[in-house]
Amino acid sequence: MTAHREQPAGRLGGSTLFWLQALLIFNTVLMLYPIMVMVFSAFRSTRQIYSSSFGLPDFTNFANFQRILADTEFLQYLANSVIVTGGAVIGFLTFGTMAAYALARYQFRAGPLILLVFLAGLMVPLKLAVIPLFVQLKAFGLIDTRLGLIGLYTAMGLPSTVFIMTGFLRTLPRDLEDSARIDGASEPRIMWSIMLPLTRPALVIAAIYNAVPTWNDFFFPLVFIHTDDRKTLPQGLTTFMGEFSTDWGALFAGLTLSALPITLVYILLSRQFISGMTSGALK
């Protein structure tokens, strides 16, 4: 009976299962074929792409990739994206976990109100406040800086991080910290050495849930960043898509290179990605 969970949903007729299977295969082809054409086209010349996108290309022809790497700031854009996303992940995980720890493990009067304040951030489409954000960042000298983006993405990641971490920290048993307290451990020490090591799975969920939209974001860099060597990858992509507009081989190579980092991470961590990115929507 324990294997019950792994059983398919009831006894399905063979023909039903066949059609559902066909639907899934059709969908997978639809999902993967455009990506395959993108990668294959990155190895073709523009003339070859115009005449036909079908068939196997010459996979030893790296001319398009070389052109992208030599003539554009691709590596700089990539580095900027890593800096901005990395900074934001550190920011919202650190501040979010600190706040969540206080809200989950201590009783204090302002606690419920502070939790509500954080959660209110979940409902705000910040895009629509872009004008005052622009004015404010300008006044503080944060416009056209990576630090400004890091701060903004930290703020955007905080509500869901506080939500996920508070929920998780509340489930940890009280006895752990009580016995440490009796042994005379200080509060910061209890938090750092006893409680935080247990929160790893929730940290991964919160990190992925917010890191993916941060990595992919285009809107805020579009408004805030103007200097070419501070642009993030999605924004930089629009720059060289404009430059190479008729050189399709280079365009497909640029798209392929831009899609590569997150796709590789997804292939390695697909289960964590799926549960991380859908977790915010469920519960």
Partner: peptide, 24 residues
């Protein structure tokens, strides 16, 4: 949900475009 053969693979592929940037 009906878990035909290969359903885990299809579950991963349906989510591939979601992780890409809208710009791409």
């Amino acid at each position: 949900f009906c878990q035909p053969w290969g359903h885990r693979f299809h579950q991963v592929t349906v989510f591939v475009p979601v992780i890409l940037s809208t710009v791409i």
